[in-house]
Design a binder for these strands. Structure first.
Lengths: 341, 341
DNA sequence: GGTAATTTCGAAAACGTTTTCGATAACGAT
DNA sequence: ATCGTTATCGAAAACGTTTTCGAAATTACC
């Protein structure tokens, strides 16, 4: 049961390979009669073109690469979802790699994808990423490239982001409106731009409301885990028992905080209000239901692929490509952890 | 900045393409002197072989396809994690597609992957899958193939599974040991083999303990969601207020049940004990912490790829391949939803 | 110096497709 | 019958690599 090729079809029909190829691709210069014959035979033999040969000839594989810090993560798996959905609609397949937040791995994977000659790369930076030579390498080779969420502002490429600073500002503003006077912040790691921006948004909201900024009230995550949430919850309760509001970098950590407060009997939202970030599915399942900032993760995936496709297509026609940045809207979602009904 | 090819290296060095190729691939019949020259030039030009050409020539792409019902799912994203980890270790990349539990999509995707000529396919069936012509097509074309978790017992291929019946049996046995006399079961959809097996395990445990089976105590999920958990929790509380134990098809649904019980003030585990399935990360975060059955999802991914690689390699050497089934161990994890400490 | 063995190299085919361009055939118009 | 036009086809090159097989060059041996 060997693979069917154009050659075999041509031979059994007594015509040339060229004509068979043309018939299958709806070229105008083949008679209806022979076209019909070719189509029928191809159908009955269930011919499918050898994609390896097509790739070589056309110099494209209709495959893109996706590098993310981790697959097992509510936010990222939703983005993946959006990307592979939109990609499939457009006849593209997606190769997924995860950097496990390691810069070294990330570099290797970028190289791997370029060797594979994917048609484009979508990527969210690992937390370690500050050296970006490997990223510039992508641009140098003119491989279509889009970054989302964790981006580097220095790289001139298309991006899909949210306005982290504004979103964080709104979250803290929400706490203040609910009456909070002393607000702590559990922030993300040092490097990632969005951790920085959310911190800046927190700071700005305090300033605009005449609340003095106190660096002692800022706690920095290393791994952004549930366990860190537990630990920081404990630390805050001990070090600053008068804190009445906490803005947390992401829902997962916020859930850890809530879990600790539940355990020690600290009342949320009566004694302290908590707001997270991301609108993780789980945040409306726990008690108390967690207020949060909705971040359109699926849509982020969709838009990322669309931008990439745009770049792929304009470059295919040898036109110059102008990178674009898409900023998606966020919104504060009020639940039980910041208001009692 | 065009791509570097063997031809270019050969021309600048004044030797043949053949020799360049051999030098780069450590063939014995090339002198140390020319090898050195080739290696150095290749290095300085940062030559990388055109994988499209290599694919065509070697008839393999070092890429595999993975079809799963949904990416955004704790169990599946962990399996994905295991697969792409192990694949990368062995120099393989992974194309991921999701069937969204639709048989029609699943069929299309199988075809897509075969057209792409991936070196192998790993797959977990969608809930709709009962017609398996598309699966048999994979075997007919002798594409290496592994199924995991949601499998079809009728297909002769390698599989990675758990013993769902035994695991369910142990879960129900656990409830009985904790004193439950009237045990309900929220089961999965009708088709999937593992939903059937877990149901059988439930039944068997009742029988062996002299508890009469009552089909009225069995509730069938359609979509296996948190919302269904809420709904069935409500239904059970109304229809059978004397139920004192519930075995739920998966943690997500069980969490829904707990959420409803929390809401109406039904005490878990005092009035009713609940045990889930999968050991979802979230199950130890909610109150009360959910007892469950641990299912080694990451390991399932690793083993799936290993089996696939085994098949790829033996088939590459034209040896006959004997499918194998790997059964991974599960264990009951006791938490607060079945015992008070 | 002659023969045999060993190194070292390269021509060429093959993988299967796409596409250009020229050739042939068919047809209509005069 | 001649010319121009159009419809239909196929030869061949190209994509870049791998590998076989034979040729040439070098070395070893007596």
């Amino acid at each position: 049961m060997r693979d069917i090729t154009l050659k075999q079809i041509a031979e059994t029909l007594g015509i040339s390979i060229t004509t068979v190829s043309k018939a299958l691709k709806d070229y105008p210069d083949v008679s209806p009669k022979t076209r019909k014959a070719v189509l029928e035979l191809a159908q009955s033999l269930s011919y499918t073109p050898n994609s390896f040969a097509v790739n070589l000839r056309t110099k494209e594989s209709r495959t893109i690469g996706l590098i993310i810090p981790e697959v097992v993560h509510h936010f990222f798996s939703n983005v993946i979802n959006g990307i592979i959905d939109e990609a499939e609609k457009n006849g593209y397949l997606v190769i997924i790699l995860q950097s496990n937040e390691s810069l070294e791995l990330e570099k290797k994977q970028v190289e791997l994808l370029m060797q594979k000659r994917v048609d484009g790369i979508i990527m969210s930076l690992s937390n370690e990423s500050n050296d970006d030579e490997h990223i510039r390498d992508i641009l140098r080779k003119e491989v279509p490239f889009v970054m989302f969420d964790k981006i580097s502002k220095l790289i001139p490429c298309s991006k899909v982001i949210i306005n982290d600073q504004k979103a964080a500002f709104n979250a803290v503003q929400h706490l203040i409106q609910k009456g909070c006077k002393k607000i702590a912040h559990i922030r993300g790691p040092v490097n990632p731009q969005n951790a920085i921006d959310r911190f800046l948004g927190y700071k700005k909201a305090l300033e605009q409301n005449g609340i003095p900024f106190d660096s002692k009230l800022v706690y920095t995550c290393k791994n952004v885990t549930f366990e860190e949430g537990l630990a920081f919850g404990k630390q805050i309760a001990i070090e600053h028992p008068d804190v009445d509001g906490i803005f947390v970098i992401t829902d997962l950590v916020a859930v850890g905080v809530l879990a600790h407060f539940n355990e020690i009997g600290l009342k949320v939202p009566e004694q302290v209000k908590v707001i997270g970030f991301s609108n993780w599915f789980m945040s409306q399942v726990i008690t108390p239901k967690l207020s949060t900032v909705d971040q359109p993760s699926f849509e982020m995936g969709v838009q990322s692929f669309k931008l990439l496709l745009e770049e792929i297509n304009t470059k295919k026609e040898l036109h110059p490509f102008q990178p674009r940045t898409i900023e998606l809207e966020t919104s504060v979602i009020e639940r039980d952890s910041t208001s009692k009904n």
